[in-house]
Amino acid sequence: MLACVLAAWEPDPEPKVEGTGVPGQDLRNRDVWVIVRCFNEAPVVGAVLGELLEEFPNVVGVDDGSTDGSAEVMRAAGARVVRHAVNLGAGAALQTGLRFALLDPAAHYFVCFDADGQHRVADAVAMVERMRREDLDILIGSRFLEPSGGIPAGRRALLRAARLFERLSSGVSLSDAHNGLRVFTRRFAGQVELTMHDMAYASELLRLVAASGLRYAEHPVTVLYTEYSLKKGQRSVNSINIAVDLWMQRIFGRRRG
């Protein structure tokens, strides 16, 4: 019943209001939902959400079954929290966040943002602004569009290999295959149905982008390789697991209905 009321509620005729000047009543980006997946990131996620909330009024933290009190930290920071009772994986958490944010009929843009502090809020803001200007449905962050140092050599080589793998398996050609910073319009977000629940979702997402036929582009972003994010990041060996899972799915078909 609440949903009916909300569906009838219409957003302001001019949604691109630049801010009212009244603290806490900023109307900027109220048609944007930021989705932050979080699994045991309590030491950093509070600061990340705090920064995000300065620019985006709608932030949902998806706590993927953390055991370190991440959910409480996120709630204290002022974000909405959706909590998985058990750990399901990165892909499942993103899907949950999208599904939750899509319930807001005023939501037009969906930003995926990592919880470990590796992305800059300024990049997310710039990406949303570009989405408003250009006719795009998917905008994906890339570390490689601009020459930026700071990417460890081993990681750089692995990301290049991942890029080749994506190109071969999805047909989508991107300079940075696994950047967690992405912006979707409602049109694309509404049709995302991830079946890969772990880290392999990134590749599946690119296949969905290719299959949707919608317009996508890349946006140069800076990834902050803090000691924390490097320690928490995926281990390189995991790319073998991901590749095998993806090809198993391709050969044997998707889940039954």
Partner: peptide, 28 residues
Amino acid sequence: NRLVDVVRAQAISEAIHAEGMPGADRGL
């Protein structure tokens, strides 16, 4: 897959139960 479906449905309904629909605090 079934576990994911169940946990997701439970997580979202709990979040809505606790703090209302997403974006509801704005419009109402």
